[in-house]
């Protein structure tokens, strides 16, 4: 099917609730680890190669037709922070709702039935891509891009960073994003034959620890 569906799915205005999340940037800003565009770039680069790579591989695997329940369990094992598991499931549930209305599919219906509280968002994203007639690489692109676009947009609001600078950060990361997507697509499409252990498990300790600290704040601008 055509590429246009990819633009619809990857559009920041796609109504799946992602705008309410900073991908850990709010906590990093408060802790003084992000103070400007250079820090934002380093933050996004680290997130891309860890959480972004894992999410992209899960999405690619789901788009390639791997068992969603197995992928969801693999996502749990790769997400030690319960705050991040909860976030991933909430975002997954919101995406399921939006996706079923946009690209109705029996697979999305079955997923909603199996995971009434939501499956991990990258797994839903992969199945959504599949329902939209897109492939594993397209799904990986959506997931990898989301892993950096969310924090970049959030930091514009959190620090009053110039939006042009934030967008330039994303543009500079584009070649690395391509490489992460290549790796994620290879790993994700191998799951059906080689099993879940082929999925990457790259971790970012401060994202996990920071998510727990952030979840305990009484007042937050972003949900995560």
């Amino acid at each position: 099917m055509g590429r246009a569906a990819l633009l619809v799915l990857a559009d920041g205005r796609f109504p799946a609730g992602g705008h309410a999340h900073s991908g850990g940037a709010e906590e990093a800003v408060k802790a003084g680890r992000i103070t400007g565009a250079a820090d934002l770039e380093a933050f996004c680069r680290g997130r891309l190669h860890t959480a972004g790579l894992v999410a992209a591989a899960l999405a690619a695997a789901a788009a390639a037709g791997a068992d969603p329940a197995g992928l969801d369990a693999a996502a749990d094992a790769r997400t030690p922070s319960p705050a991040l598991r909860l976030t991933a499931r909430r975002l997954g549930r919101q995406l399921t709702r939006a996706a079923r209305a946009t690209w109705p599919s029996p697979e999305l219906d079955a997923l909603a039935g199996t995971f009434p509280k939501g499956a991990h968002q990258p797994v839903v994203l992969g199945l959504t891509a599949r329902a939209a007639g897109l492939g594993p690489e397209d799904a990986a692109y959506c997931a990898a891009y989301e892993s950096v676009s969310g924090p970049a947009t959030a930091v514009v609001r959190l620090l009053g960073l110039d939006p042009f600078e934030a967008t330039a950060v994303l543009a500079r990361l584009a070649p690395e994003l391509d490489r992460v997507v290549d790796r994620a697509t290879v790993a994700g499409t191998a799951v059906r034959t080689a099993g879940l252990d082929t999925l990457p498990a790259a971790s970012a300790p401060l994202l996990e620890i920071g998510a727990e600290a952030h979840a305990a704040w009484p007042v937050r601008l972003f949900a995560s």
Binding site: R33, F43, G46, R47, H49, A73, A77, P80, E176, A202
Partner: peptide, 30 residues
């Protein structure tokens, strides 16, 4: 059942951002 699967890559030649604000932020012990 796999309950934990985590990989940390750091040092020269590791994927970028490992020493940045999302991963280790200059800490030398993990």
């Amino acid at each position: 059942r796999t309950v934990l699967d985590q990989e940390l890559a750091c040092g020269p030649g590791a994927p970028g951002g490992w020493d940045g604000p999302a991963v280790l932020a200059g800490h030398r012990a993990v």
